[in-house]
Design a protein around this nucleic acid. Structure first.
Length: 213
DNA sequence: CAGTCGATTCACT
DNA sequence: GTGAATCGACTGA
């Protein structure tokens, strides 16, 4: 059997590079979620880079904790966090090991297994919305904290694996401020997306939460 | 140990 | 465009 050229596993060395190099390079790559009912494959269209303990917008800003421990580990692994009491978001850890840099997967196009994704995303009005936004993406792929620490760079049958896909030419890569990041974390244009792609999520500035009574 | 708020989404106006 | 939902991690006292 032939392996299509876009379905070769991404080597760990891909992630063992500066996070600002890895993030735009992830656009157009494929993430395969293996489920009991079959595979769901995502073509990545939007990401954000988080630059470890020096980055005020990063979960690693205040050092290692039980939640973010995976970020401080080896590149090519998946960091999943739980937020707003109901959502999960997923990142790919970058290198070098111990630097706690990571790329948040913000949006993508479901290119295989859309029927499976739809079962988890009943509020989606069309297929473009299945993974438009980081929590929607994780929901569509059935990703939660039980997958925190999964190795996405292995030939073993892990539930999440990265494939080469088709990298996007530089002309098609856009960048801008990160979405929903507050304060000093918002100054850098560390959000990257594919130009004119209908699955990219809308930009939203950080909104402070209203005080409860 | 109580208070605050989040790398968000959805229903509604 | 606005506000609610919902809970656990983190902070500071």
């Amino acid at each position: 059997m032939i392996t299509p050229p876009d379905r070769i596993p991404l080597p760990r060395a891909f992630f063992d590079r500066p996070v600002l190099e890895v993030a735009p390079d992830l656009l157009g790559r494929l993430l395969v979620r293996t489920t009991p009912d079959g595979p769901i494959t995502l073509r990545i269209t939007e990401v954000e880079a988080y630059d470890g303990p020096n980055d005020p917008g990063s979960h690693a800003y205040r050092g290692p904790t039980a939640r973010n421990a995976v970020m401080f580990g080896a590149p090519g692994h998946v960091y999943v966090y739980f937020t707003y009491g109901m959502w999960h978001c997923m990142n790919l850890v970058c290198g070098p090991e111990g630097t706690a840099r990571a790329v948040l997967l913000r949006a993508g196009e479901i290119v295989e297994g859309a029927a499976l994704a739809r079962k988890r995303r009943l509020s989606a009005r069309n297929d473009r919305e299945l993974a438009k936004g980081p929590a929607r993406l994780a929901t569509a792929l059935d990703v939660d904290r039980t997958l925190d620490g999964t190795d996405a760079c292995t030939s073993a049958e892990t539930p999440l694996r990265m494939l080469t896909g088709s990298p996007v030419v530089p002309d098609q890569v856009c960048s801008g401020p990160r979405t929903g990041v507050s304060g000093d974390g918002a100054v850098h244009p560390w959000r990257f997306w594919i130009a004119d792609d209908p699955t990219v999520s809308p930009y939203r500035a950080h909104t402070p939460r209203r005080r409860s009574s």
